[in-house]
Design a protein around this nucleic acid. Structure first.
Length: 417
RNA sequence: CGGGUUGUAGUACAGCGGUAGUAUACACCCUUGGGGUGGGUGCGACCCGGGUUCAACUCCCGGCAGCCCGACCA
C-alpha cells in the first residue's frame, strides 16, 4: 500500500489525557482514534493489526475443531430470563427499550444466546461434542473504561462455546483449549501464564485466566519464573518471596499482569436454564455440559504494544505487524529514482511481502525515519539516489541497529526462506 | 459509584475581569534534501448552562466530558 493513499497523519505529541503507553503510541502513530472513553475507531493501520490478530485466533480455534458463526449483538430480554442474568448484569449491560417498549440489550457475552440456538439443534449424544466460536463486538457499560484499548466499552471478543455429554469430555477439551490459547498469545509475541481464578458470574467452578506480564496490567499475579506457576491475587494469599508451591524450587514474585484470555467450565448452568438437553445411549434426557472461552481482541493488540515498544515507538512482532516491510523513498525523486522505487515496491508486492511504501512527497528523510520508527513495521527498506547507483536498497530491522545493502531479488529470496 | 485532577486551534502548552499568544499541524512562497532543514505569509480555539459584574475564556454555582486512584470487572 502506498502511504500517500492512506488516511494517515502521525502526531509528534501524545494526547495529554492518555497515560497508557498503548493509547499514546497507537494514537500518535495513527492506528486508532478515540471517539469516547473506551470506544475507538480502528484506522487503516490499526485495522490491519486487528485483522492479523483475528487471523491467528481463527487458525488456532479452527485447529481445535471449532466452527465459526455469528450471533446477534442486539438481544431481547426474554433470552436472558431463564438464567436470571438480565438482572445480575444490569450495571454492565446496555439495556434499553425499543420503540414498542420491549426490553432489549446489547450482548456482553453469549452463553444464553448460544444455549438457546443449540437447544434447537443438539438432541442426541451423537451430536456431541460440538464447538463453536464467533469474533464479534461486545458492549459493556464499564464503570471505568481505562488504559487505552485495554478496557473498552465496545470491543471485539472471540468467544467460543463447547458442548459435551459429560465433565470428562469437557475437561479434555478444556485442556486442549489452554494449549490453543497459549499458542495464540505466543504467535502474537506474548508469553502468557495460566492462572486459576474464580468463576465470577459464570460458573460455580473455577476458571483459568491467561496473564501477560506488563506494568500496564491491572491485575496482580503471583508468579514463579522457574516453573511458570501463576495464581491470581484474588484467590491466593501468598507472600512475596514465598517458595513456589508447585516446583518448591522457585520463589514467588508479585507482578502486574493483563488478562488477555479467560476460560470457564460452565457445567450445566446455562443448558439447564435453556432446556438444552440430549438423549444418552440409554435414552435418558440429560443437560448438555458446557464450557466458554474468551479472548479480547483489542486488549490483546494493546498488550502487544505494551510489551513491544521502545522510546521511538512500537516494535511489532512480525505476525501481527500491519505490514512486513516499510519501504521509504528518500528525497525528491527524479524520474529514474521514482521508477527504481516503484520497481522495488512492485517486486516486493509481487513476492507477497506486504509493503507500506512511504512515497510521500515533500516529506523530509528525517520525518520518514521518525514515522517508520513510530509505526514499528519489523523491516525497513530505504531507497534513494545513493542506493540506486548500486541498484540496491538498504535493509534494517526495527529492533536492530545495523543495516545491509542488498538487491531486491536477494531480499525476496532471503525472506521467502 | 466514591476520591482526585483537567477542560483554550487538529495536537501540545501559555494567558488575562476589558483586543486570546506560542509551538506543532495545515495552505502558499523561498530554502533544504539520509534522522522531525531554516525563514516568510496565511487559516484555525476559550466544553455547556446559570449567576456576579458596566464587562466573564478568566470569579462563583451547576452540569457534561477526559484522565488517574479506588470499588467493580461477564
Amino acid at each position: 500500500m502506498r502511504q500517500s493513499e492512506l488516511l494517515f497523519k502521525t502526531q509528534k505529541t501524545p494526547p495529554k489525557d492518555e497515560v497508557a503507553v498503548n493509547a499514546q503510541l497507537l494514537i500518535r502513530a495513527n492506528f486508532v482514534h478515540k471517539l469516547m472513553a473506551g470506544v475507538y475507531s480502528y484506522l487503516p493501520l490499526g485495522f490491519r493489526v486487528r485483522e492479523k490478530v483475528m487471523k491467528i485466533i481463527r487458525e488456532e480455534m479452527n485447529a481445535l475443531g471449532a466452527a465459526e458463526l455469528l450471533m446477534p449483538s442486539l438481544q431481547p430480554k426474554s433470552a436472558w430470563d431463564a438464567s436470571g442474568r438480565w438482572e445480575s448484569l444490569q450495571k454492565i449491560m446496555y439495556q434499553f427499550q425499543d420503540h414498542s417498549g420491549r426490553d432489549v440489550g446489547l450482548g456482553v457475552t453469549h452463553e444464553e444466546i448460544v444455549a438457546l440456538l443449540a437447544q434447537g439443534i443438539i438432541d442426541s449424544y451423537a451430536d456431541l461434542p460440538k464447538y463453536v466460536y464467533q469474533i464479534q463486538a461486545k458492549f459493556r457499560d464499564e464503570p471505568r473504561a481505562k488504559s487505552g484499548i485495554l478496557r473498552g466499552r465496545e470491543f471485539t471478543m472471540k468467544d467460543m462455546y463447547s458442548f459435551h455429554v459429560d465433565e470428562t469430555s469437557l475437561n479434555d477439551f478444556y485442556e486442549e483449549s489452554k494449549r490453543a490459547y497459549v499458542n495464540v498469545f505466543e504467535r502474537c509475541g506474548l508469553k502468557a501464564y495460566i492462572t486459576e481464578a474464580s468463576g465470577g458470574d459464570f460458573s460455580k467452578s473455577y476458571s483459568h485466566e491467561f496473564m501477560v506480564e506488563t506494568a500496564a496490567g491491572e491485575d496482580e499475579t503471583y508468579l514463579c519464573r522457574l516453573c511458570g506457576f501463576a495464581r491470581n491475587k484474588e484467590i491466593a494469599d501468598f507472600k512475596k518471596g514465598e517458595r513456589c508451591p508447585s516446583c518448591t524450587a522457585g520463589v514467588l514474585e508479585k507482578v502486574k499482569t493483563v488478562e488477555v484470555g479467560n476460560i470457564f467450565k460452565l457445567g450445566t448452568k446455562y443448558s439447564e436454564a435453556a432446556n438444552l438437553n440430549f438423549k444418552d445411549k440409554e435414552g435418558n434426557l440429560k443437560p448438555v455440559v458446557m464450557g466458554s472461552y474468551g479472548i479480547g481482541v483489542e486488549r490483546l493488540m494493546g498488550t502487544v504494544v505494551e510489551v513491544h515498544h521502545d522510546k521511538k515507538g512500537i516494535v511489532w512482532p512480525e505476525a501481527v505487524a500491519p505490514f512486513n516491510v516499510h519501504l521509504l523513498l528518500l528525497g525528491e525523486p527524479n524520474e529514474d529514482l521514482q521508477k527504481f522505487a516503484d520497481g522495488v515496491y512492485n517486486e516486493l508486492e509481487k513476492a507477497g511481502i506486504e509493503t507500506l511504501f512511504d512515497d510521500r512527497k515533500k516529506v523530509s528523510a528525517g520525518e520518514k525515519f521518525y514515522d517508520a520508527d513510530l509505526i514499528g513495521i519489523p523491516t525497513r527498506i530505504v531507497v534513494s539516489e545513493k542506493t540506486m547507483v548500486q541498484e540496491k536498497m538498504e535493509v534494517k530491522k526495527r529492533n536492530g541497529e545495523e543495516s545491509n545493502l542488498m538487491k531486491v531479488k536477494d531480499f525476496v529470496q532471503h525472506t521467502k526462506k
